[in-house]
């Protein structure tokens, strides 16, 4: 396999510091990560997350290279998530990547974190031209590919779905990460508590819903019922806007990706709308739904093979890099 290309990718947009290694012939070879856990009752502090990444980077890298079991020289390019994300966290990953690329004398490859979620999920599920629903702590976006770009058909106008669940869980003194905690309590709840349902065309807005849910919490509503109702309202909003985008784009595949994609109730809802419109439903495997180095490594292969690399001295991170600003040379029409 003389034509095999191998990329090492570093992920550090938020709480996860991850290193993945992927091969153009064999897909993901290595995926190692260390996740920063904020103190109980607090959110991610960017400086603390960066500090965590800084401390964990050597051991994650060592572990990744150990599992790789080939010479480090066989890596053809070093990639990093250039954005979007928390500035200090991004810069830590970028620093490791620049150092490695310089030391190995290999090209440095910039990767967009959200596109990396989509590309790894496409590889793992086999989805070719899907309507993508990306739901995580950093994103809530409904997007489809056309003419060299991911086009955004709907998104949140304020906080993300992951953010909604995390903050609500924190306010209810549930353990972090909030999504799974809310999900397991929701399964035990049954009574529906009315909460604001806000859909604006293909867009959603969760901040009013969060405020209302917090108020209900103060009114001593049953937490199980509240988790159930919060999930039902928030996920129905996402399902409805996804269905609108699906009807509009007439895509034949639906792909659910991002950390919140691991939620079974959300999966059920999105699979129902896909079925209703005769589209195939795909969801990223749970193991790879959250942030990881593998997504960066795999996407780096596609970016690198398209001839894109970045000089170390120009490799500034982009904390606010929008998905639809990235040119995509590697996807077919």
């Amino acid at each position: 396999m003389a034509s095999e290309i191998i990329c090492l990718g570093i992920e550090s947009t938020a709480h996860t510091f991850g290193i993945g290694i992927a091969s153009s012939e064999n897909g993901v070879l290595v995926d190692v990560k260390s996740v920063y856990k904020p103190p109980f009752g607090a959110g991610i502090h960017p400086r603390e997350a960066a500090q965590h990444h800084c401390e964990e980077a050597p051991s994650v890298l060592n572990q990744a290279l150990k599992e790789f079991s080939r010479k480090i020289d066989s890596v053809d390019a070093v990639a990093f998530s250039m954005g979007p994300g928390l500035g200090p966290a991004l810069r830590t990953g970028a620093t490791v990547a620049r150092a490695l690329a310089t030391w190995l004398n290999k090209p440095l490859v910039p990767v967009h974190h959200a596109i990396a979620h989509i590309e790894l999920a496409s590889l793992l599920t086999g989805a070719k031209d899907p309507l993508v629903i990306l739901v995580s702590g950093g994103h809530t976006t409904i997007t489809a590919y056309a003419d060299r770009r991911w086009r955004v058909f709907g998104e949140t106008e304020d906080i993300t779905l992951g953010n909604l669940l995390d903050v609500f869980a924190r306010e209810s003194s549930l353990p972090s990460p909030g999504g799974p905690a809310v999900e397991s309590l929701a399964k035990k709840g049954g009574k529906f508590i009315d909460l604001p349902y806000v859909v604006k065309g293909n867009d959603v807005s969760f901040s009013g819903l969060l405020t209302a849910a917090k108020k209900k919490l103060q009114m001593n509503c049953d937490l199980k019922d509240l988790c159930h109702s919060l999930q039902e309202v928030a996920f129905s909003m996402v399902a409805e806007t996804s269905e609108r985008a699906l009807a509009f784009t007439e895509k034949k595949e639906v792909l659910l990706v991002g950390g919140v994609a691991a939620n079974e109730r959300l999966q059920q809802m999105i699979s129902e709308i896909a079925c209703e419109h005769n589209a195939s439903f795909y969801v990223v495997p749970k193991r790879y739904s959250g942030d990881c180095g593998a997504q960066i490594a795999w996407t780096a292969l596609l970016v690198y093979r398209s001839g894109i690399e970045i000089k170390v001295e120009k490799s500034y991170v982009k904390p606010k890099w929008r998905l639809d600003q990235v040119a995509i040379p590697w996807r077919d029409e």
């Binding site: 770009r149 065309g201 639809d324």
Partner: peptide
């Protein structure tokens, strides 16, 4: 504002050319 944002988004995504 939201009304205009929605139609703007429609043009950006579906009629981007």
């Amino acid at each position: 504002g939201v009304d205009l944002l929605l139609i703007k988004r429609a043009f950006q995504s579906a009629h981007y050319k």
